[in-house]
């Protein structure tokens, strides 16, 4: 049986690993060179966060698994990321809107976790907070540009919001096994972040002349390992070299 802390760290780490990986798929193919560089930077920040979080998860687990064992030798059903993170990268609109939606959540989560009573988590969160603030600023500006830009970009940005919105609810579903961690001040209650998230997201969507869908069913399952079909394919690619040479050093 995994401990709640280990599970909580997987949720934090897997979100960043999967989203970082998806973003890294852009490398060399972005709409302009400046954005290629910016997206690579965002991907790098996420994978860097995952590296720290999964490394700590391995330490907490105490079973001799390090971050690479956790990243490369777990199957999709053992991943704990929110479904939002694993959806295919889509067009530039989907990529930007997703980073914005998840980024606003991340900033709130890191703010809370930078006060964690667990000093390792607090340290990681303080570093990640600075990075996520930049991601939100960068992607938020793009959401406004795309929403407000041309008819085509508006339609694409709105389609991205519509596509991604049903996956945002899961971010705020507080897993039952984290209750003791929340009361000990180790973990943050994500359900408490939703109000602030909604306010910040609505503000940017309004300036982008975009609208959030109302009353849609919120998909869930990632936190328990019930994923979309996309994750398996992503992991197959990500893990192929490592799994072809078990035990090898790189």
């Amino acid at each position: 049986m995994n401990t709640p802390l280990f599970e909580a760290l997987l949720r934090l780490g897997d979100d960043r690993l999967v989203l970082g990986h998806r973003t890294s798929e852009w490398c060399g193919h972005a709409p302009i060179l400046e954005e290629d560089i910016a997206l690579a930077n965002i991907a790098l920040d996420h994978i860097g966060q995952a590296n720290l979080l999964l490394g700590y998860a391995g330490t907490v687990e105490g079973a001799g698994r390090d971050q690479d064992a956790l990243a490369y030798f777990r199957d999709a059903v053992e991943y704990r990321n929110a479904l939002l993170c694993e959806l295919p990268k889509g067009d530039f609109g989907v990529t930007i809107v997703r980073h914005f939606l998840h980024g606003v959540f991340s900033v709130l989560q890191w703010e809370a976790l930078s006060q964690s009573t667990d000093p390792t988590i607090a340290g990681i969160a303080a570093k990640a907070l600075k990075e996520s603030k930049y991601h939100v600023r960068h992607c938020g500006e793009w959401v406004i540009r795309l929403g407000d830009g041309t008819d085509e970009s508006h339609a694409r940005a709105q389609a991205a919001v519509d596509q991604l919105w049903p996956y945002t609810g899961e971010l705020f579903m507080q897993p039952a096994d984290e209750a003791s961690l929340v009361s000990a001040g180790v973990s943050a209650d994500v359900s408490a972040l939703e109000g602030a998230w909604r306010a910040q997201v609505s503000d940017v969507l309004r300036r982008a002349t975009l609208t959030a869908p109302e009353g849609v069913w919120m998909q869930r399952g990632g936190r328990e390992g019930r994923h979309t079909e996309h994750l398996g394919h992503m992991l197959a690619e990500m893990q192929i070299v490592a799994r072809s040479h078990p035990g090898a050093q790189w």
Partner: peptide, 22 residues
Amino acid sequence: ITRAPSLRRKMILLAKVQDEGG
């Protein structure tokens, strides 16, 4: 980049390719 066999290698490669863009 998407197949780099460790997180450290993935980060280094991503940073390298980003440098080339720069």
